[in-house]
């Protein structure tokens, strides 16, 4: 994670080509490095200032005014009380939809990803191309068509309808990232199981899936975050308040005039918790997804 113990041959050679003694050289090399850390912290502080401000504003006692102190010295939890009272059910709805999307996306994508990593055929590149292009289709195009279809099928205002729609954010990404991992599974361990008489399905369930545990976690986390963040399908595929994800709750709060900023910001903080918690606790998996699957 950190480069405190710099890899030999890299930093020392560039910082002090003719080092008199290694400890002296390291001390000399560390000073500019710590300055870099300070600059990096400054960049991060600027980039994350809005996040800080969201938390700060959520703890302000005021109702409809925005005047906030720089530090929440007298934190008030009135905004949170209001947010939980009004948006609590919506948070639960979002949670159910997101968990459903994770389960559905992994169940659909994992077997396909495995086969796409195994079969050698020129059709594979065609399939991968289609998956790449599908990620580029604007959400509003899907929403337009799904609204009409959902209206006929009675899927508007339903949790499973939103799960199916939100999976469009996740499934192409999950297929690509799982396939990239499964390509690296040594064929010998699967073949060994096959020779012992296991069928494709059993080899997949008892060998491939356990070995792919880390990439499944990464893919699942992203599926969760994509679905949790969804706003477009929440907005277009619900017409009543029966099923209302929290993103839509925030949007209705915003309206044309905001009447209670601390409640809005408290809801925003609660809606940010999954991203913040996962980034801190599951950093390894998130970083793997950000670089591996490359794109949202």
């Amino acid at each position: 994670m950190t480069a405190l113990t710099s890899t030999p041959g890299r930093a020392p050679s560039s910082a002090a080509p003719s080092a008199p003694s290694s400890s002296q050289a390291r001390r000399r090399a560390d000073r500019p490095k710590l300055r870099h850390t300070a600059v990096g912290l400054l960049f991060l502080a600027v980039m994350l200032f809005p996040v800080y401000w969201m938390v700060n504003a959520s703890l302000q006692p005021s109702g409809n005014t925005l005047t906030a102190d720089f530090l929440p010295l007298n934190p008030s939890f009135a905004g949170y009380e209001r947010a939980i009272a009004q948006q609590g059910p919506n948070l639960v709805t979002s949670l159910l939809i997101s968990l459903g999307t994770v389960a559905f996306s992994l169940a659909v994508a994992a077997p396909a990803a495995y086969m796409l990593s195994q079969i050698r055929s020129r059709w594979i590149s065609v399939a991968l191309l289609a998956i790449l292009v599908s990620q580029m289709i604007p959400g509003i195009v899907i929403a337009n068509a799904l609204y009409a279809a959902y209206n006929d099928l009675g899927l508007l205002n339903s949790i499973h309808g939103l799960i199916l729609a939100d999976a469009t954010h996740a499934i192409p990404f999950v297929i690509l990232i799982l396939r990239a991992f499964m390509m690296r599974i040594p064929p010998s361990i699967v073949e060994a199981a096959r020779v012992d008489g296991a069928g494709v399905v059993r080899a997949f369930v008892s060998i491939v899936l356990p070995v792919s545990r880390n990439s499944l976690i990464t893919a699942g986390l992203f599926a969760f975050l994509f679905s949790w963040s969804d706003f477009l399908f929440a907005l277009t595929l619900t017409t009543t308040e029966a099923v209302r994800p929290v993103t839509l709750g925030i949007y209705t709060y915003l309206g044309t005039q905001v009447s209670n900023w601390s409640a809005v910001m408290a809801t925003a903080v609660l809606s940010s918790l999954p991203a913040i918690v996962l980034l801190v606790l599951a950093q390894k998996y998130i970083a793997a997804g950000a670089t591996g699957g490359s794109v949202k």
């Binding site: 994670m1 950190t2 930093a11 490095k33 990096g40 809606s271 980034l279 950093q283 949202k296």
Partner: peptide, 19 residues
């Protein structure tokens, strides 16, 4: 490479992960 660079870089992902 500097101390905490990896940690700072992954924290930078936050704006992208927020709804």
């Amino acid at each position: 490479r500097f101390p905490l660079s990896g940690f700072l870089r992954s924290m930078l992902l936050l704006p992208w992960l927020l709804p």
